[in-house]
Deep mutational scan, measured.
Amino acid sequence: DDWEIHFNNITIRLHGVSEEQIEELKELIKNGAHEEELRKWAEEVNR
């Protein structure tokens, strides 16, 4: 699925990401992940 997530003036566009991966991302954000951590997560997902 395609997703677009907005938070802290950042837009993250995701393509072909599962519901499970979105839940992981929500947890990262909820736990106060920094932009660098989110980038690493996105790189892993996009492999």
Rank of each mutant, 00 (worst) to 15 (best):
Asp1Ser: 14
Asp1Cys: 15
Asp1Ala: 15
Asp2Glu: 14
Asp2Ser: 12
Asp2Ile: 15
Asp2Tyr: 15
Trp3Val: 10
Trp3Thr: 05
Trp3Met: 11
Trp3Leu: 08
Trp3Asp: 03
Trp3Ala: 03
Glu4Gln: 07
Glu4His: 14
Glu4Tyr: 14
Glu4Cys: 07
Glu4Arg: 06
Ile5Phe: 14
Ile5His: 08
Ile5Thr: 04
Ile5Trp: 11
Ile5Arg: 04
Ile5Asn: 02
Ile5Cys: 13
His6Tyr: 10
His6Leu: 10
His6Ile: 12
His6Gln: 10
His6Asp: 06
His6Cys: 12
Phe7Glu: 01
Phe7Ile: 14
Phe7Lys: 01
Asn8Glu: 11
Asn8Pro: 08
Asn8Thr: 09
Asn8Gly: 14
Asn8Trp: 07
Asn8Asp: 11
Asn9Tyr: 09
Asn9Leu: 12
Asn9Trp: 07
Asn9Val: 10
Asn9Thr: 09
Asn9Lys: 07
Ile10Arg: 02
Ile10Gln: 07
Ile10Lys: 05
Ile10Trp: 04
Ile10Met: 10
Ile10Ser: 09
Ile10Cys: 12
Thr11Asn: 07
Thr11Arg: 02
Thr11Ile: 15
Thr11Phe: 13
Ile12His: 06
Arg13Asn: 13
Arg13Asp: 12
Leu14Trp: 06
Leu14His: 03
Leu14Asp: 01
Leu14Phe: 07
Leu14Ile: 09
His15Met: 05
His15Phe: 13
His15Tyr: 14
His15Arg: 07
His15Ala: 06
His15Glu: 08
Gly16Met: 08
Gly16His: 14
Gly16Lys: 14
Gly16Gln: 12
Gly16Arg: 08
Gly16Leu: 10
Gly16Val: 06
Gly16Pro: 03
Gly16Ile: 07
Val17Trp: 08
Val17Asn: 01
Val17Ser: 01
Val17Asp: 00
Ser18Leu: 05
Ser18Ile: 02
Ser18Tyr: 05
Ser18Lys: 07
Ser18Trp: 02
Glu19Asp: 10
Glu19Ile: 13
Glu19Val: 12
Glu19Cys: 13
Glu19Ala: 12
Glu19Pro: 13
Glu20Val: 08
Glu20Gln: 14
Gln21Pro: 00
Gln21Glu: 06
Gln21His: 09
Gln21Leu: 12
Gln21Val: 11
Gln21Asp: 07
Ile22Arg: 06
Ile22Leu: 13
Ile22Asp: 00
Ile22Gly: 03
Ile22His: 03
Glu23Ile: 09
Glu23Val: 09
Glu24Trp: 06
Leu25Thr: 00
Leu25Asp: 00
Leu25His: 00
Leu25Gly: 02
Leu25Gln: 00
Leu25Glu: 00
Leu25Arg: 00
Leu25Ile: 06
Lys26Asp: 03
Lys26Ser: 06
Lys26Phe: 14
Glu27Lys: 10
Leu28Lys: 04
Leu28Arg: 02
Leu28Ala: 01
Leu28His: 01
Leu28Pro: 00
Leu28Asn: 00
Leu28Ile: 07
Ile29His: 01
Ile29Lys: 01
Ile29Asn: 00
Lys30Thr: 05
Lys30Gly: 04
Lys30Ser: 07
Lys30Ala: 12
Lys30Gln: 11
Lys30Pro: 00
Asn31Lys: 10
Asn31His: 08
Asn31Ile: 06
Gly32Glu: 02
Gly32Ala: 02
Gly32Ile: 01
Ala33Met: 10
Ala33Pro: 01
Ala33Asp: 01
Ala33Phe: 04
Ala33Trp: 03
Ala33Asn: 02
His34Val: 11
His34Tyr: 04
His34Lys: 13
His34Gly: 15
His34Cys: 09
His34Phe: 04
Glu35Pro: 10
Glu35Asn: 04
Glu35Cys: 14
Glu36Tyr: 08
Glu36Met: 07
Glu36Pro: 05
Glu36Ser: 11
Glu36Asp: 13
Glu37Trp: 02
Glu37Thr: 08
Glu37Asp: 13
Glu37Phe: 05
Leu38Phe: 06
Leu38Ile: 15
Leu38Ser: 00
Leu38Thr: 00
Leu38Met: 03
Leu38His: 00
Leu38Cys: 01
Leu38Gly: 00
Arg39Lys: 13
Arg39Ser: 05
Arg39Met: 14
Arg39Pro: 00
Arg39Asp: 03
Arg39Cys: 10
Lys40Arg: 14
Lys40Ala: 12
Trp41Phe: 05
Trp41Ser: 00
Trp41Asp: 00
Trp41Thr: 00
Trp41Asn: 00
Ala42Lys: 04
Ala42Ile: 15
Ala42Pro: 00
Ala42His: 06
Ala42Phe: 15
Glu43Val: 03
Glu43Trp: 04
Glu43Lys: 04
Glu43Cys: 04
Glu44Asn: 09
Glu44Trp: 03
Glu44Val: 03
Glu44Pro: 00
Glu44Ile: 04
Val45Trp: 10
Val45Lys: 04
Val45Gln: 11
Val45Asp: 02
Val45Gly: 01
Asn46Gln: 15
Asn46Ser: 07
Asn46Met: 15
Asn46Phe: 15
Asn46Lys: 09
Asn46Val: 12
Asn46Cys: 15
Arg47His: 15
Arg47Asn: 15
Arg47Ile: 15
Arg47Trp: 14
Arg47Phe: 15
Arg47Val: 15
Arg47Tyr: 14
